[in-house]
Amino acid sequence: MSEHIETYRHDLRSYLIGLALALLLTGAAFAAVLWQVAPPHVLLGIVFGLGLLQVIAHFRFFLHIDLGKSARDDLQLILFSTLIILLMVGGTLVILMNLRTRMM
C-alpha cells in the first residue's frame, strides 16, 4: 500500500510542476506580446520558443515521456505523428498557395 501512495505522490508532484510550468510559459508569452518587449520579428521568435518549451514540458510532465530506453517507442510514435501532421499541413498550404496564384 505504501508503494501505491508513493507513486500517487510522485505523479501528483509531476502534474503540479507541469501545471506551474505551463501557466508560467503561457503567462510569459502573453506578457511579452502585451508589453511588446521586442520588435515584432523577434517577438514572434520568442513566442515560438516559449511554445516549444511548453510542448517539451507537456511531454515530460503530463505524458511522462523522457529519453529513457523504455520511452523511445512513445517518442518515435510522437515524432512520426508530428511528421505526418506537418506533411498534411504543408501540402494543404502548397495547394492553397497554388490556387491563390491561379486566381490572381
Rank of each mutant, 00 (worst) to 15 (best):
S2E: 14
E3V: 00
E6L: 10
T7A: 12
T7F: 02
Y8L: 15
D11G: 07
D11P: 00
L12M: 07
L12W: 03
R13D: 04
Y15S: 01
L16E: 00
I17G: 00
I17Q: 00
G18L: 06
L23S: 10
L23R: 04
L24G: 01
L24P: 02
L25G: 09
L25E: 11
L25F: 11
A28K: 02
A29L: 10
F30Y: 14
V33D: 06
L34T: 04
Q36L: 06
Q36R: 14
L43I: 11
G45V: 13
G45S: 05
G45E: 06
I46L: 14
I46R: 03
F48G: 01
G49F: 08
G51P: 10
L52S: 14
L52G: 14
Q54S: 13
V55C: 12
F59Q: 08
F62W: 12
L63D: 15
L63H: 15
I65V: 12
K69D: 09
S70R: 11
A71M: 09
R72L: 09
D74K: 13
D74H: 08
L75Q: 09
L77P: 00
L79W: 06
F80E: 11
F80Y: 02
I84K: 04
L86H: 03
L86C: 08
M88F: 05
V89E: 13
G90A: 04
G91V: 08
T92C: 06
V94F: 06
L96I: 06
N98S: 12
N98W: 05
N98T: 09
L99H: 03
L99S: 04
R100A: 15
R100S: 07
T101G: 00
R102V: 05
